[in-house]
Computed example of a mutant assay.
Amino acid sequence: MPAAARVAAIRERLEAVFRPHALEIVDDSHRHAGHAGARDGRGHFDVHIVSAAFAGMAPLARHRAVYAALGELMTTDIHALRIEALTPAEAS
């Protein structure tokens, strides 16, 4: 899947599940050229997401929720994912 399509797929899934107030996805794959995970074509991404859905959730639970929302993309298209998941109150 081309890089732009991967970002679009990530965005679509996160928006559907979390209805975020803010969502930024950065494809950082170019910085990992030659890395073992880059050799199989999967990408490296940074996600900054702000959603009321994270209220009352510990950081680990937020990350697990993001992984669950991304589903099979975590094994087919994403090698590494850096997540910053905040509530609207935390982001302001």
Rank of each mutant, 00 (worst) to 15 (best):
P2F: 02
D28K: 10
E15V: 14
G34H: 06
R13G: 06
L23F: 02
E15S: 10
H30A: 15
E24R: 12
S29M: 09
R6W: 00
P20H: 03
R13Y: 04
A33G: 08
A4K: 08
E24N: 08
H21M: 11
I10F: 04
E12Q: 14
A36L: 11
P20M: 02
P2C: 05
S29R: 06
E12I: 01
G41V: 03
S29G: 00
E15T: 15
H21L: 12
A5R: 15
E15Y: 08
R31H: 14
A33M: 07
H21N: 09
V26K: 14
G37T: 05
A38R: 11
V26M: 04
H30S: 13
H32I: 05
P2T: 13
P2M: 10
P20E: 02
V7K: 10
G43I: 01
A9I: 02
A3N: 10
G34K: 04
G37L: 00
A33F: 10
S29Q: 05
I25S: 00
L23G: 03
G41L: 01
D28C: 12
R11P: 01
R39N: 06
D27V: 10
D27E: 03
H30Y: 11
D27T: 09
I25N: 01
R19S: 15
L14C: 00
R31E: 05
H21F: 12
A22G: 06
G41A: 08
R11V: 00
E24G: 06
A8E: 13
A36F: 09
A4T: 14
E24A: 11
I25R: 02
F18E: 11
R42S: 11
G37C: 04
P20L: 04
G43A: 05
R19K: 12
I10C: 01
A9G: 08
H32D: 13
H30E: 10
A22R: 11
H32F: 12
L23Q: 06
A4G: 04
H30P: 07
A8G: 02
L23H: 01
A16Y: 07
H35F: 04
D27Q: 09
R42M: 11
A36I: 13
V7R: 10
A33T: 14
P2G: 14
R42A: 05
R31D: 02
R31T: 08
I10Q: 00
H32A: 13
G37Y: 12
G37W: 09
R42I: 09
A36G: 05
L14M: 04
A38N: 09
H21E: 14
A5F: 02
A9P: 01
H21K: 11
G41Y: 04
R11S: 00
F18D: 13
L14F: 03
D27L: 10
D28T: 14
V26F: 02
S29W: 03
I10Y: 01
A4Y: 03
R31K: 14
V17C: 12
G37A: 05
R19L: 07
R39D: 09
L14D: 02
A5Y: 01
A22K: 15
R42C: 12
A16N: 07
I10V: 15
R11A: 05
